[in-house]
Write a protein that binds this DNA or RNA. Sequence first.
DNA 1: AAACAGGCCTAAA
DNA 2: TTTAGGCCTGTT
Length: 280
Amino acid sequence: MQSETTEGGIFFRPEDDFDPAKIFECGQCFRWNPDRSGTYTGVAMGRAVRLQACEGGYIISCTEKDFADIWFDYFDFGRHYADMRARLSTDAYMRAACEHGAGIRLLNQDKWETLCSFILSQCNNIGRIKKIVEALCRAHGDPIAFEGGVRYTFPSAEKLASLQAEDLVPLRAGYRVPYILSAARSVAEGRLDLDALSGLSFDAALHALKAERGIGDKVANCVILFSLRIPEAFPIDVHMKRAVEAHYGKLFDPSVFGELAGLAQQYMFHYQRTGKDPYT
DNA sequence: AAACAGGCCTAAA
DNA sequence: TTTAGGCCTGTT
């Protein structure tokens, strides 16, 4: 990947798929927002950054060290998405989904933030999830100075574990509050070691996550795919269920996509939500 | 107004 | 093993 220090941050030229709008709006993250010009600002990995398109590439407002140590991996620049799309284009439907989703990348996000955010996501729409997450960060995260204003980090599991349910009433997160507090305590007290999970098999990681209150198949698969980097995770929500059954029937097994299953899911999901699939 | 959201849990077949 | 109803809250 070509990158260099420039005015306002690091200039980089992605080798293949990189469409910020698709990456940030395809439902895998909740803390990136665009302005009118399509420039995104986000808070992730304990930092606030701006990502803007420019002639021939993009500029991200960070140091060279952070680009190498954090953002390269966060944006999954080590994998070749054009190749993976080609390998997933095994039938007319997947070809259409891959083409429609060209530019998507799977982010490698913070494990605890992903776990907590997707617990909050259950039975909620993206707008409300984002509001709840921002309220959580504003109230309990650490402030970061950013472009003359202030942003807030995602609060650590230890921080949340020190709170009571009544402290989180202002989030308006309802019955999900006890779930995130319980998860925070499991992580803070070492019963749930998220870093260790990423070294396990998919089945083992799934089993460990589902042992937590408030974490079922869907949330666990999101955590595994979006933060544990175990690529065969395949989250199935109501939209995915519809897409899968329409094209592959009720007996579909995501393992037919092997290690590309998670990415296949993203393309299918995005196509289902924003594309024009004549069969669903 | 009543139903429904990008699930999960529990109880009951 | 599968299914129904309830759950906080906000929106339609």
